[in-house]
Simulated scan of single mutants.
Amino acid sequence: MYPYHNKIKQRIKNGELKTYFYSNSYPKIGECLVLVFKTEPNYRPIRPYRYHEYLDLLETETKLNAGKQKS
């Protein structure tokens, strides 16, 4: 079994995340949070029941990246 969420969280921490958005009609999933990465695979959908695992991580990484850009 592929450790889907562990790999995604590691990619976020490695600074590979480009952006993210919410979708109401992602193919074969419907509502989800879509993480967009700089490297393949570029798009990674997260189902609503997993949002809570990502919101704090995304907020922290966004602040860290904003600090890096100011330097």
Rank of each mutant, 00 (worst) to 15 (best):
L35E: 03
K28W: 05
S25C: 13
S71G: 11
G15F: 00
L55I: 15
L64G: 00
Y43G: 00
K38C: 12
Y22K: 07
L57T: 12
I8T: 11
K63P: 01
M1Y: 00
E31D: 08
N42E: 15
Y20F: 15
E53H: 09
H5I: 10
Y43V: 04
N6G: 12
L55G: 01
F21N: 14
L33H: 06
H52D: 13
M1K: 04
P41H: 06
G30D: 03
L58M: 06
P41G: 01
G30Q: 02
L57I: 13
S71M: 11
P41N: 04
Y54C: 03
T19M: 07
F21R: 15
I46H: 01
Y4V: 09
G30F: 02
V36N: 10
K70A: 06
L58T: 06
G15Y: 00
P48R: 02
F21D: 12
K13H: 02
L57H: 09
P3I: 09
Y54K: 03
K18H: 14
C32G: 06
H52S: 11
L64N: 10
E16K: 11
K38A: 12
Y4P: 01
P27F: 03
G15P: 04
C32Q: 05
N24G: 10
K68S: 12
S71H: 14
E16I: 10
E31K: 14
G15V: 09
T19W: 01
Q69E: 15
Y51L: 07
Y49G: 00
P3D: 13
T39Q: 13
K38Y: 12
E61V: 15
P3F: 11
E16S: 10
N6K: 09
L17T: 07
G67K: 15
V34R: 09
E53F: 08
P45F: 04
I46G: 03
E61R: 06
G15S: 06
G30V: 02
N24E: 10
K9S: 04
L58D: 03
K38F: 10
N24T: 06
S25Q: 15
R44T: 02
T60I: 12
E16W: 13
I46Q: 01
N42I: 12
P27S: 04
N42S: 13
F37H: 03
G30K: 02
L64T: 05
P48G: 02
I12V: 09
Y20N: 10
Y22M: 06
Y51P: 05
R44E: 10
N65F: 00
D56T: 03
N14I: 01
V34N: 09
I29M: 07
Y20P: 06
K70E: 10
K18G: 07
I29R: 04
E31R: 11
Y2R: 15
E16L: 15
E53C: 08
R50T: 05
K7N: 11
L57D: 11
N14Q: 15
E53D: 14
N24P: 00
K7S: 09
K70W: 00
Y4C: 02
H52L: 01
L35F: 05
H52Y: 13
Y26L: 08
K68Y: 08
F37Q: 05
R11W: 08
P48Q: 03
T19N: 14
E31G: 01
R50W: 15
K70R: 12
S25F: 13
I46P: 01
K18I: 08
